[in-house]
Simulated assay, not measured.
Amino acid sequence: MSVLIQKKPSAPMAQTIAIRDHVLSADVSAAEGGEDAGPSPHDLYDAALGACKALTVMWYARKKGIPVDDVRTVIDRDDSGERTGVYRLSARMQVQGTLTDAQVRELESVAQKCPVHKLMTTVTTDITTSLERMP
């Protein structure tokens, strides 16, 4: 799968992100030279974790017949140590439904195992970058 990212023609920094049939925007704040026309790449990274945890909980609950009606996830970022190699994310999740305490614990355990959480913490990601002139 490929993701296409291209500068928005009328914006100083903003990018259009095309994923399958979906189009998103990314930008940086005005203080960083952008127009804040969309979430920053860090925001998207953080959101990927939260969305994955929520979707994983919903998928698992549906598969196991656990009555989850709604999931709310808040991701808090502490990037104060990023330049020294530490980027902290905290996920606070709330579920709505008629759940036992055991089911809540089970869902919390499942949320810890979402694929993006694993990518961020246990998988080595190799990235290659090439730069060439546009035709």
Rank of each mutant, 00 (worst) to 15 (best):
M1N: 09
S2Q: 13
S2F: 07
L4C: 03
L4I: 15
I5W: 03
I5N: 01
Q6R: 15
K8L: 14
P9G: 07
S10R: 12
A11K: 12
A11V: 11
A11T: 11
A11R: 13
P12Q: 09
M13E: 04
Q15G: 09
Q15A: 12
T16G: 05
I17N: 01
I17F: 01
A18T: 14
R20T: 09
D21T: 07
D21G: 05
D21V: 00
D21M: 04
D21A: 09
D21Y: 01
H22N: 12
L24A: 01
S25L: 14
A26Y: 02
A26H: 04
D27N: 06
D27S: 06
V28C: 11
S29T: 12
A30E: 15
A30Q: 14
A31I: 00
A31Q: 14
E32G: 10
E32S: 14
G33H: 09
E35T: 14
P39N: 08
P39Q: 09
P39W: 06
P39L: 11
P41T: 05
P41V: 01
H42Y: 13
H42Q: 13
D43W: 05
L44M: 12
L49K: 04
L49Q: 10
L49G: 08
G50S: 08
A51V: 14
C52M: 06
K53F: 00
K53W: 04
K53M: 13
M58E: 14
R62C: 11
K63D: 15
K64S: 11
G65R: 11
G65A: 08
I66H: 07
I66D: 07
P67H: 06
V68G: 06
D69Q: 15
D69R: 13
D70F: 10
D70L: 10
V71W: 02
R72C: 01
R77T: 15
S80P: 05
G81P: 02
E82G: 07
G85A: 01
V86I: 12
Y87E: 03
R88F: 02
R88P: 02
R88G: 07
L89S: 05
L89F: 05
L89W: 05
L89D: 08
L89M: 12
S90V: 15
S90K: 13
R92S: 08
R92E: 09
M93F: 01
V95Q: 00
V95M: 01
Q96W: 10
Q96G: 12
Q96V: 15
G97D: 07
T98C: 11
T100H: 10
T100F: 09
D101L: 08
Q103T: 09
E106K: 13
E106W: 07
L107D: 03
E108I: 07
V110K: 04
Q112D: 15
Q112G: 10
Q112V: 02
Q112I: 03
K113D: 10
K113H: 10
K113G: 01
V116C: 00
V116L: 00
V116R: 01
V116K: 04
V116H: 02
H117I: 03
L119A: 12
L119C: 08
M120N: 07
M120Y: 11
M120H: 07
T121Y: 03
V123K: 10
T124K: 09
T125E: 08
T125A: 10
D126R: 10
D126F: 06
D126L: 09
I127M: 03
T128Y: 00
T129K: 03
S130M: 00
L131F: 03
E132G: 03
E132H: 05
E132Y: 00
E132C: 01
M134S: 13
P135I: 00
P135Y: 00
